[in-house]
Design a protein around this nucleic acid. Structure first.
Length: 870
RNA sequence: GGGAGCGUAGCCCAACUGGAAGAGGCGCCGGCCUCAGAUGCCGGAGGUUGCCGGUUCGACUCCGGCCGCUCCUACCA
């Protein structure tokens, strides 16, 4: 193909050309400009795992559509990008491949940036940051110190997964069936003193503020509410009989005090002080140790078979001194929630019922259904608290009452008698942020035997990670470093030790959005910049971050406001949130050669379908196990990267494909079916353009008088502006794509060279270019240039639809008889309901289906439908 | 175990949130173009809206119960 051949669109030439033009114009470099409204669009930044995959691209292309659209709407747009660069995979790579985590991470960033740049995203790369860079984490350490001083940080004990062979703490994902993933040794729960952010102090505030997050998806708001888990309940003690010294009472918390007369046992967590005190009994010790082998994840604990151990201790029912109940240690009671001790009421809690059946404990109904209630059998009776039920063993409450009423009555009863008190509790726990790992932000603290934990003076920041560590060693690599931790106490000058824990990587991602407003500053933020750019107007990311990342970021924004690093308005940092669906794919595995219990994962490109349809490895032909369709992730290798498509068809084709078909919020199973279709669209539009060019009027020619055909094309073009605008605003990119197709299809059918048609075709082509610009910007710019425009689209305003032109004057209404379509009528769009009814009843087909009967009712839905009911 | 979501043509999905089951794309079939293929153009078929029940003049849409799949579950990010 020669350079002057315009019969085909040449993405390989056009894409670098336009990227250079945009770069030279500096249009994506955000500068403060008080004369324009600002718009901050942000996609969740990636973990540099090695290569960009389709899931990333989908995320960033969506953000790019919004960014480019807002630019055309006259906003001063900030659209930055960076790297969530600390984390466990870098350490694993170091062990497996002998590469330093830092080298591995920076190489990944280089590769992934190299993959992203050709996508033509409107990113301000001058603000790029990496959380593993001392420039970033120095400011994170400064923030930590300010938060410590302001009382947002505390130190206390918590449980971790301990691998006794590796001498190391394991992440939940490193615990497989209760065993360490490398050592295979049974995992233990062990207590360590760790640093915490006091997020639970903010539970009420974070809960209340959810109401104000109107542009967040309801499902995310609901998930956050449930996670915070506010509950009102009763806390009170049981007197104990036969307990070790110092354990005269057992404090329990219950959200259902109305079921107290249905109690049949007490249960405590294996981590409860009483359970530990009882470990002098070897059987108790053995039971507790078995429980501790479950690891720390909520999922594992709850999924495990419910087991209990009768301690022999008994507790006295507070309402009847002669009534005593056995106290069990139970593997499903969490020490972190409530008081770590409960009373079990089998009739009204399924877990308690299963437990009671297993250990032969009584099941006592306290209430039954208000009408025809039967005693509990195999299923616990747990109606909503708002439902009226009949209390058969209630106290201080009418026989028929709702759960809520009875709970309030029970709390009042206990408070009046001084037996206990109503308390509000939250499921939300403090955020444990200490990690016994290498590749993270060092916690800037020095431990002195005399002064305790002492903050590192700010002028000595950053506390830089040591580079020379032995990651293969058993234990925390930083703690094992021979010299790094040895320092003098900043307060008293005595020999002291640095804190060797690093921060949870969620800390890094909890404030990066604020750092983007002044990424090179020598302070965490800069007031003028934060004032101008905050908040994030549109945040875009995966639904998998609906709880933790977003909740932690909300906490951080408040703490940063409290320490003077963010303005008041940034307390809720994300004005609008869009959660895009995940790109999912099958997984492929074969048994590990050394250990058939384990699996080796394979990339989709490594497998192929055999002749009989079975899935085999491409090189060896070994059979492959096809696993479930799950989120693309490096660890399972079910990733597809965009390079092949970009190399064969160009970035715009990949972008178009990503935006077509699937609604953005829905998960998509990745398939390359449709690539050719996406590429075809570009060529098709190009051909339409090149065919039309010789007959089109000059740019800016005013509209001539238009005949029916030209008016119809113009109407569709202006409707397309309305539709695409609405669809982009509503994140319905798949619908925007469909509307562009519709206009292109109409253009393809127009070949008339009459002046009015030539005008309408130019107008429609320009609108196609402008509507498609946020999605396939290189192609759109090239079109725009061929159409004779000198100012690039990136600096061109979004068009306004001509409302008068976009409206239909006549609409077609379907007519139903008894809900079934029997005919249709055409009426003026502003026809009255009476008119419509009259015309509908005059319809031949309607008369026929009425069979002489008089209509009982006629329902006219303006602009929609007419239903005649007989 | 708990929390959240999804399910429409062979496939991806629309259906203005209660108003004609079909906008758009992929694939498939037929025709045209071509020496042939690719590209392209024109046309077409395809349905118990996961299942059962309820509300309604009218249900893909709302309610209840099942089935299947996905995400989160506090040390994966």
């Amino acid at each position: 193909m020669s350079a002057s051949d315009t019969s085909r669109y040449d993405a390989q030439a056009a894409e670098p050309k336009w990227q250079k033009i945009w770069d030279d114009l500096g249009v994506f470099e955000a500068r403060r400009d008080e004369s324009k409204p600002k718009y901050y669009v942000l996609e969740m930044f990636p973990y540099p795992s090695g290569r960009i995959h389709i899931g990333h691209v989908r995320n960033y292309v969506m953000g790019d559509v919004i960014a480019r659209y807002k630019m055309a709407r006259g906003f001063n747009v900030l659209h930055p990008m960076g790297w969530d660069a600390f984390g466990l995979p870098a350490e694993n790579a170091a062990i497996e491949k002998g590469i330093h985590p830092g080298d591995w991470t920076y190489e990944n960033i280089r590769v992934m940036k190299g993959q992203l740049r050709p996508m033509g995203l409107s990113l301000d790369w001058s603000r790029e940051l990496a959380t593993c860079d001392p420039e970033y984490y120095a400011q994170q350490q400064a923030l930590f110190l300010d938060m410590l001083e302001a009382g947002y940080v505390t130190r206390k004990s918590s449980v971790v997964n301990w691998d006794p062979v590796e001498n190391t703490v394991l992440a939940n994902e490193q615990v497989i069936d209760g065993k360490g993933w490398r050592s295979g040794a049974p995992v233990e729960r062990r207590e360590l003193t760790q640093w915490f952010f006091k997020i639970s102090d903010m539970a009420e505030e974070l809960l209340d503020a959810i109401d104000g997050l109107e542009k967040w998806p309801d499902k995310v708001r609901l998930m956050q509410r449930n996670w915070i888990g506010k509950s009102r309940g009763l806390q009170f003690p049981f007197k104990l009989i036969g307990a070790p010294e110092g354990f005269g009472e057992l404090e329990v918390y219950t959200t259902r005090p109305d079921t107290l007369l249905g109690a049949s046992f007490g249960a405590i967590s294996p981590d409860h002080p009483l359970a530990k005190a009882l470990e002098t009994n070897p059987e108790v010790r053995a039971f507790n140790e078995e429980c501790r082998r479950l690891g720390t994840s909520e999922e594992a604990i709850e999924k495990a078979e419910k087991k209990g151990f009768d301690t022999g201790v008994r507790m006295v029912h507070p309402m009847d001194p002669d009534w005593t109940l056995p106290v069990y240690i139970a593997n499903f009671i969490l020490m972190d929630y409530g008081t770590g001790a409960i009373f079990g009421c089998p009739a009204h809690d399924q877990r308690d019922l299963d437990f009671a059946r297993k250990y032969g404990l009584p099941v006592i109904d306290t209430f039954v259904a208000a009408e025809g209630g039967e005693p509990v059998g195999d299923e616990a009776y747990t109606p909503p608290k708002t439902e009226k039920v009949r209390y058969v063993k209630g106290f201080d409450v009418p026989e028929i009452a709702t759960g809520e009423e009875a709970i309030d009555a029970a709390i009042a009863y206990f408070e009046q008698r001084g037996l206990g008190q109503g308390v509000t509790k939250y499921r939300l726990r403090d955020w444990g942020m200490s990690r016994q790992r290498y590749w993270g932000c060092p916690i800037p603290i020095i431990h002195c035997d005399r002064c305790g934990p002492v903050p590192v003076p700010k002028e000595e920041l950053p506390v830089v990670l040591p580079r020379d560590v032995d990651l293969g060693a058993k234990g925390n690599p930083i703690a094992l470093h021979p010299t790094w931790s040895k320092v003098d106490c900043p307060k008293c000058g005595a020999a002291a030790r640095r804190e060797t824990d690093t921060m949870d990587t969620f800390v890094d991602s909890s404030w990066y959005f604020a750092r983007y407003t002044a990424p090179r500053a020598k302070t965490p933020t800069v007031p003028e910049e934060a004032d101008y750019w905050m908040n994030v107007d549109q945040y875009i990311g995966g639904i998998e971050h609906a709880i933790l990342h977003l909740l932690y970021s909300r906490f951080f924004a408040r703490a940063m406001q409290g320490t003077g690093h963010l303005p008041e308005k940034a307390k809720e940092p994300f004005n609008a949130l869009f959660t895009q669906g995940m790109v999912v794919h099958e997984t492929y595995s074969t048994p590990h050669p050394d250990d058939p219990e384990r699996e080796v994962w394979h990339f989709p490109e490594e497998v192929t379908r055999g002749e009989d349809g079975s899935v085999v490895l491409r090189d060896s032909g070994r059979p492959v196990t096809v696993g479930p369709v799950i989120k693309m992730s490096k660890s399972k290798k079910n990733v597809v990267d965009p390079d092949d498509i970009v190399a064969s068809f160009g970035a715009d084709t990949a972008r178009w494909l990503m935006l077509s078909d699937s609604p953005p919020e829905r998960d998509v199973e990745w398939t390359t079916a449709g690539v050719e279709g996406a590429a075809r669209l570009l060529q098709r539009v190009w051909r339409i353009l090149e065919t039309a060019l010789p007959v089109l009027p000059a740019p800016g020619t005013p509209a001539p008088a238009c005949g029916d055909e030209a008016t119809a094309l113009r109407r569709l073009a202006h409707k397309t502006i309305q539709n695409v605008t609405r669809d982009i605003e509503g994140f319905a990119f798949n619908k925007a794509v469909a509307h562009i197709y519709e206009l292109v299809n109409a253009l393809a059918k127009s070949s008339s060279e009459a002046p009015d048609m030539a005008f309408a075709r130019r107008e429609a082509l320009e609108i196609v270019a402008q509507m498609a610009n946020p999605m396939i910007p290189h192609f759109a710019e090239e079109m725009w240039e061929r159409l004779g425009h000198e100012t690039p689209l990136v600096q061109t305003a979004w068009p306004e639809a001509d409302l008068a032109l976009a409206q239909d004057d006549v609409i077609v209404l379907p007519i139903q008889v008894n809900g079934k379509k029997r005919g249709e009528i055409s009426v003026p769009k502003d026809a009255s309901n009476e008119d419509v009814e009259e015309r509908a009843l005059a319809q031949e087909s309607v008369i026929r289906f009425l069979e002489g009967k008089a209509p009982r009712k006629v329902i006219v839905v303006p602009g929609r439908i007419v239903n005649v009911v007989v």
